[in-house]
Design a binder for these strands. Structure first.
Lengths: 113, 113
DNA sequence: TTGATATTTGCCGATATAGGAATATGATTT
DNA sequence: AAATCATATTCCTATATCGGCAAATATCAA
């Protein structure tokens, strides 16, 4: 089956460091492609292609203004990340709680003996 | 340059759905390889290979017990995710705040006119 | 129209995996 | 030692990108 394509799996799309850099650059706000090319050391076509992937997977949106294409983040699409991370954190905390309980039990036992 | 390898980039490692499934399965707690193979519909060698990747990238740890290898999560390695997401959330919230301020301004102006 | 600017797209080669099948390694039991 | 169980690893093929370069598109200016 191979991996789900970068254009359909948000996790896979973000798996590329270059695309993360682009997303990070866009935190500053809506930017035309050229501006992204300037701040990052990437070729223009490279940026364009990454933007296409990010757009297809829904992490960015694009609007045309004159001859520029302005890209902006679509942070709502980070939700899968959020949920996944939350799931794992919850589990981790639950386990920490168990450790806590365990330690308390030990203390109680220690106080009794 | 291509993407950073799955064995060195946590984001890339998690970019594969199969590996995410394995990580999810391990939320229940430490598990031997066979147990993972049983719950997920993946071949043994597939699971083993994914575990190797996850281990190299530090997302899981392994200990041997008899002829079994027990794998467990190493949730600390999710930190890069955490930080990255936090960065983007922060930015998103900041922008929402701006929208808020903007709306308030509009209301004030509306009240004055 | 011609030219310049902004961005996308197609083509190509190099590389990284993913996945299956079979085999190898290691530990345990008989 | 031989057989068995649990896992890892090797070999091989198909495929998915990635990155560069050049050509194609689109928009605006003179």
């Amino acid at each position: 089956m191979a991996r789900a394509s970068t254009t359909s799996d948000v996790f896979n799309a973000v798996g590329d460091a270059g695309r993360r850099e682009i997303l990070d650059a866009l935190i500053a706000g809506e930017l035309p492609v050229g501006a992204i090319v300037d701040r990052l050391s990437m070729s223009q076509s490279q940026v364009s292609k990454h933007l296409r992937v990010l757009n297809e997977v829904g992490l960015v949106r694009c609007r045309a203004e004159g001859r520029c294409r302005l890209y902006r983040l679509e942070p709502a699409r980070l939700r899968p990340f959020h949920e996944w991370l939350a799931k794992h954190e919850q589990a981790m905390n639950a386990r920490l709680d168990k450790v806590d309980e365990y330690l308390k039990e030990l203390q109680q036992q220690g106080a009794q003996s």
